[in-house]
Computed example of a mutant assay.
Amino acid sequence: MFQRLTVVLLAVLALSACDGVDPNSPLGQRKAIFKQMLKTSEDMGGMLRGRLPFDSGRFAEGAVHLDALAREPWQHFPMVRDEGDSSARPEVWERQTRFHELARQLEASTGDLREVTRSQPLDATQLKVPMDRVEAACKACHSEFRNH
């Protein structure tokens, strides 16, 4: 009985560890980048909305990190739709010009936010508008190209 239970437990653990996405595949790479972007922007937004204490140094570091991340995922969208559990709609591959236009808008908004954070000391009230632009750029692309 113990052996049978052990085998079943090991099988369940092995299956739960597999989410089916190769972390080195284009899908795995972009999912990892998008998760980092989400975590970074949530922390920054939390500081501006009072959920987290405002830390100007940490916010500025987050802006630099978010700007760098915003330039990375696009290289991991191959020219043809890849296999796997992607949140991307087929339109990503069907409307490449528009998809890349929205990617450039995100990059511009994160770049603007990064620039604003170079002027110290930071004032949280002055960061709201540029952060709102970053969030709007994310939402615009999600609305057109992501399955929710």
Rank of each mutant, 00 (worst) to 15 (best):
T6I: 10
V8M: 07
V8G: 05
V8S: 05
L9C: 14
V12R: 05
V12F: 08
V12L: 01
L13H: 05
A14I: 07
A14H: 03
S16A: 11
D19A: 01
D19V: 02
G20D: 06
N24V: 07
N24M: 10
P26K: 02
P26I: 06
L27I: 10
Q29N: 07
R30E: 02
R30H: 04
R30Y: 00
A32S: 08
F34R: 04
K35W: 00
Q36T: 07
L38E: 08
K39W: 13
K39P: 00
E42T: 13
E42H: 06
D43K: 08
M47Y: 09
L48I: 02
L48G: 03
L48E: 00
R49K: 12
R49A: 13
G50D: 08
L52F: 06
F54M: 08
D55I: 03
S56I: 01
G57P: 05
R58Y: 09
A60G: 02
E61S: 14
E61R: 11
E61P: 07
G62K: 05
A63S: 15
V64R: 05
V64G: 00
V64C: 04
H65V: 03
H65G: 00
D67L: 01
D67T: 05
A68L: 11
L69W: 14
L69N: 07
R71C: 11
E72K: 15
P73W: 05
P73H: 01
Q75P: 13
Q75R: 14
H76A: 01
H76Y: 08
F77D: 00
F77N: 01
V80W: 06
R81I: 02
E83A: 13
G84L: 03
D85V: 13
D85K: 15
S87W: 03
A88Q: 09
A88L: 11
R89I: 03
R89S: 09
P90Q: 07
E91Y: 12
V92L: 09
W93Y: 12
W93F: 13
E94M: 11
E94N: 14
T97Y: 02
T97L: 01
R98P: 06
R98V: 14
R98D: 15
R98T: 13
R98C: 09
E101F: 04
A103E: 04
A103Q: 06
A103G: 10
R104D: 12
Q105W: 09
Q105F: 10
L106K: 07
L106H: 09
L106D: 03
E107C: 04
E107I: 07
S109W: 00
S109A: 12
T110D: 10
T110P: 15
D112R: 13
S119D: 09
S119V: 15
Q120M: 14
Q120D: 08
D123I: 12
D123Q: 13
K128S: 14
V129C: 00
M131V: 15
M131L: 14
M131D: 13
D132H: 12
R133H: 11
V134Q: 10
A136L: 10
A137Q: 12
C138A: 07
K139G: 14
H142F: 06
H142M: 06
S143G: 14
E144H: 05
F145C: 04
R146I: 14
